[in-house]
């Protein structure tokens, strides 16, 4: 298939997944702030830190309060990773490959975008929770429609690949929210408030119910274990990367366990590494540091996919030498780690 088409369907899925996860971030933080003991200052800056766009935020807003952060993450068209920007880019990508995807997929993307655009003119705090669930459902619906109406061909696997890598990256960041979030003091560790925060975190990854089925206690290390290493939960990092690897091998037809290009090698190594880690190993090296490294590795896989399938060397490169409308955006910002 055309490299440009593969690139567009990959980013179409990444951006829809990204939009969904931004809604999850904001949702979890909103919930956490409501549960804070009276008198504690609200914390909105950590949210922006986690997305990696703090610099851009500071250049556009003076204060990290609830209104500004929500505006920035949801409706600010100057933020390439706001929900509205994500959906706008997803829609442009879909438009450029309308003859490749199913018309049902196009209709879903289109109405998803229109939902957000409509919401951007209302901006009332009380409508937000409803909007978050609409965003999540719209994203799920898109994935379902794609699964049920498009042939599971090369293009479909590129789409899956994009969605799964994006989801893995975002799960690392959801988990990292807790790192940035301050408790009133060290004595609060292990208290109900601490536990409530971990529960909210699980909920934002739609993981609470599934977590409860295999763990009785809410402890930091078992929550992290679930979101990083669980073999069955569809938003755990390991699950996403493992599935992504299968898509990659469907595309290339290389037998599992072997590799013939940089993308397969990078992703294969990452999966093997995760497959033999324990949560104790991770805690020992530092959870936050581990998550950072994870984000770098996932980025690396994305870059390898780009050079393997999209930009095949200098003279034959499809996109790199042109001032393309979305590639530059796509490779910067959110998917880059800029926490340090």
């Amino acid at each position: 298939m055309l490299s440009r088409v593969a690139d567009s369907i990959y980013w179409l899925n990444r951006y829809i997944e990204r939009g969904e996860n931004v809604a999850r971030f904001v949702d979890v933080n909103l919930n956490l702030m409501l549960d804070l003991p009276a008198g504690m200052p609200q914390q909105w800056k950590p949210l922006v830190s986690v997305t990696g766009d703090l610099e851009l935020f500071n250049s556009r807003y003076s204060e990290a309060n609830i209104e500004n952060v929500i505006q920035f993450l949801m409706f600010d068209r100057h933020n390439p990773n706001s929900i509205i920007s994500c959906l706008g880019i997803a829609r442009e990508n879909a438009r450029s490959i309308r003859e490749v995807i199913s018309s049902e997929m196009w209709e879903e993307v289109n109405s998803f975008y229109l939902t957000i655009e409509e919401a951007s003119s209302i901006k009332s705090l009380s409508t937000l929770p409803k909007l978050f669930s609409r965003v999540k459902m719209a994203s799920h619906r898109f994935a379902g429609v794609m699964d049920a109406t498009m042939s599971h061909n090369e293009g479909w696997h590129f789409g899956q690949l994009g969605r799964l890598l994006e989801r893995a990256d975002k799960t690392t960041r959801i988990l990292d929210v807790k790192y940035f979030l301050l408790l009133p003091s060290a004595e609060w560790v292990g208290t109900p408030l601490d536990r409530i925060q971990w529960i909210a975190l699980l909920k934002s990854a739609s993981a609470y119910e599934m977590y409860r089925k295999c763990q009785h206690h809410i402890t930091p290390s078992s929550v992290a274990e679930f979101l990083i290493l669980d073999r069955c939960f569809p938003r755990s990092i390991y699950f996403c990367l493992w599935q992504a690897q299968q898509c990659l091998h469907e595309i290339t037809q290389t037998p599992a366990g072997t590799w013939c290009n940089g993308a397969e090698r990078a992703l294969g190594r990452l999966c093997s590494q995760l497959g033999y880690l324990t949560i104790e190993d991770i805690i020992q090296s530092g959870l936050h540091e581990f998550l950072n490294q994870m984000q770098d590795s996932i980025n690396q896989v994305g870059n390898e996919i780009y050079t393997t399938f999209i930009d095949l060397g200098d003279s034959h490169s499809a996109i790199s030498d042109l001032p393309s409308n979305n590639v530059q955006l796509q490779s910067s910002g959110f998917s880059q780690t800029s926490l340090n």
Binding site: M1, L2, S3, F158, L312, S315
Partner: peptide, 14 residues
């Protein structure tokens, strides 16, 4: 998507 290479018009695929 198109390029002239090796004396032919070609398209860039995956």
């Amino acid at each position: 998507d198109l390029i002239v290479a090796d004396g032919y018009l070609q398209m860039r695929t995956t």
